Simulated scan of single mutants.
Amino acid sequence: MALFEIDESSGLPVWVQLRNRFVYLIKTGHYQPGDQLPSVRTLAAEAAINYNTVSKVYVNLESDGYVESVRGRGVFVRDIGGKADDVRSIADTEIEGCIRRCLALGMTIDEVTLRMMDVAHRLKDEKS
């Protein structure tokens, strides 16, 4: 699976999808403070995204404090301190809410687990 995939069927603009992916990768530790992000040209070519779209994402990430652009050197991840668990926490809250709603429908926890796995596999297959 590629690190950056664009979902053409998503209602989100390409630049928002890419920005959200970078934020996720930074917050979960895939990119560590000091790591250099791919150059705009490289990422645009590899992900088949317009150069200006990638540039817009990097500018947005910098204005939000996730990265720092160093003229002539590239774009580097900043230390965002303590935000690594934010994404997991939000995801856990969403998943817990979904599970509770399924339990309220009369499903067992094992049935919910199986359904979630089926849905996750279906979504994975759609991406392939």
Rank of each mutant, 00 (worst) to 15 (best):
M1S: 14
A2P: 13
I6S: 06
D7E: 08
E8V: 15
E8I: 15
S10R: 02
P13T: 11
P13F: 09
Q17L: 06
Q17M: 03
L18D: 10
R19Q: 05
F22A: 01
F22R: 00
L25D: 07
G29Y: 01
Q32A: 14
G34M: 00
G34V: 03
D35H: 13
Q36S: 15
Q36F: 10
R41G: 15
T42I: 11
T42M: 09
T42H: 08
T42F: 08
L43C: 09
A45V: 10
E46W: 01
E46N: 03
A47M: 07
A47W: 02
A48F: 07
A48Y: 02
A48G: 05
I49S: 08
Y51C: 03
N52D: 15
V54L: 04
V57G: 11
Y58Q: 06
N60L: 12
N60F: 11
D64R: 00
G65F: 02
G65M: 01
G65V: 04
S69E: 05
S69Q: 05
V70H: 04
V70K: 04
V70P: 05
R73D: 12
D79A: 03
D79S: 03
G81W: 01
D85Q: 14
V87C: 12
V87K: 06
R88C: 15
S89Y: 07
A91G: 09
I95Y: 04
E96M: 12
C98F: 06
C98Y: 02
I99A: 10
R100P: 14
R100M: 13
C102Y: 04
L103G: 14
A104M: 04
T108H: 01
E111R: 10
T113M: 10
M116H: 05
M116A: 12
M116I: 12
M117N: 07
V119A: 09
A120Q: 01
D125M: 08
E126H: 04
S128Q: 02
